[in-house]
Every structure is written in C-alpha cells, then in structure tokens.
Simulated scan of single mutants.
Amino acid sequence: MDGKDDTKRGKIRTEAELRAERLARTLRDNLQRRKQQSRARRAGEADEAMGLPAAKKDESDA
C-alpha cells in the first residue's frame, strides 16, 4: 500500500464517521421532538369526540 491510499481511506472513514455522527444527532433530535409531542398530548384532556366534527351526515338515508 502506498501513502496516498492510506490517506484516502482515512479521509473516507472520517467522512463516514462524520456522516454517522450527523445521522445519530438527527435521530436523537427527532426522538426528543416526538417525546415532547407525546408528553404534550398526554397533558391535555382526553378527546371524547366521535368521528370527524366537520363530517356531514350521510344524505342517502333521507
């Protein structure tokens, strides 16, 4: 192996490590955001509505 290959492989490995770190950070941020959304939903009152409030009744029964 000559020195250029080692340097090139080291650079690729480093870029892959940086990419993995960015991915891990993005996944952590996404998980934190989803946890926060879940906590916010639990903090509110239970939704007791049946169906969609804006939906119209079926007119074919008339």
Rank of each mutant, 00 (worst) to 15 (best):
A46G: 03
R42Y: 12
T14W: 02
R9N: 14
T26Q: 15
Q36C: 01
D2H: 07
G44C: 05
K35L: 12
R34V: 09
A40F: 05
R39A: 07
E59L: 11
E17M: 13
K56E: 15
D2F: 13
L18M: 05
K4N: 08
P53E: 14
K8V: 02
P53T: 09
L31W: 07
R9F: 11
K11F: 08
R25T: 07
R33P: 07
E59T: 13
R41Y: 06
K8D: 05
R19M: 00
A62F: 13
E59D: 14
M50E: 08
A40E: 11
E59K: 13
A24I: 00
T14K: 02
A16W: 04
L27E: 03
Q32W: 04
A24E: 10
R42H: 08
R39Q: 07
L27M: 12
I12F: 06
N30T: 10
R22L: 01
R22D: 06
K11T: 06
S60V: 02
Q37I: 03
R39P: 00
E17T: 13
R34A: 12
L23Q: 15
L31A: 15
I12A: 15
G51L: 02
S60A: 15
D6S: 11
K11Q: 10
A49T: 14
R13P: 01
K56S: 13
D2K: 12
A43D: 06
D5T: 09
K57P: 12
A55H: 08
G3N: 10
D47Y: 04
L23W: 03
A46Y: 08
S60K: 01
A16F: 03
G3S: 08
P53A: 12
Q36T: 04
D2R: 00
D2E: 10
A16R: 15
G44T: 13
E48M: 10
Q36P: 00
D6W: 11
A62S: 09
K4G: 04
G10K: 12
G44F: 05
K4W: 05
Q37S: 12
E17A: 15
K56R: 09
E59S: 12
R28S: 09
N30D: 15
A46R: 14
T26G: 07
K57N: 11
L18P: 01
R19W: 00
G44I: 11
E45L: 04
A46C: 03
G44S: 05
D29I: 04
E15P: 01
A54S: 14
P53Q: 10
G44K: 14
A54E: 14
A62C: 07
K56H: 02
R9M: 10
D6I: 12
A24T: 03
G51H: 02
Q32M: 10
R19Q: 00
R42V: 02
P53Y: 04
N30C: 06
R28P: 01
T26W: 03
S38I: 07
